[in-house]
């Protein structure tokens, strides 16, 4: 995944992908809104799902990702 170019952007150097970078930006923009719109927009960044990786044909213990819009 690591970019091969010499001048990598700071966020990629920190190990983030473009998606997480743009999500942080989006979250900041949402934070700039005024009130009635702001809570509406914040409600759109709720995260909830369960991930489990599989190894040797068996699911490992699932991990829950919930309400972590910063990531």
């Amino acid at each position: 995944m690591a970019s091969t170019a010499a001048a990598v952007p700071f966020w990629r150097a920190a190990g983030m992908t473009y998606i997480s970078y743009s999500n942080i930006c989006a979250s900041l923009v949402r934070g700039c809104l005024k009130e009635p719109h702001r809570s509406e927009a914040v409600a759109r960044e709720k995260v909830h799902f369960t991930v489990s990786k599989w190894a040797d044909g068996k699911p490992e213990k699932p991990s829950v990702r919930s309400d972590s819009p910063e990531e």
Binding site: S20, E45, F49
Partner: peptide, 14 residues
């Protein structure tokens, strides 16, 4: 919502 799916997409890509 998009945030949720993009976090998920990020997880998959990693």
């Amino acid at each position: 919502n998009y945030t949720q799916v993009s976090v998920l997409a990020d997880d998959i890509l990693k």
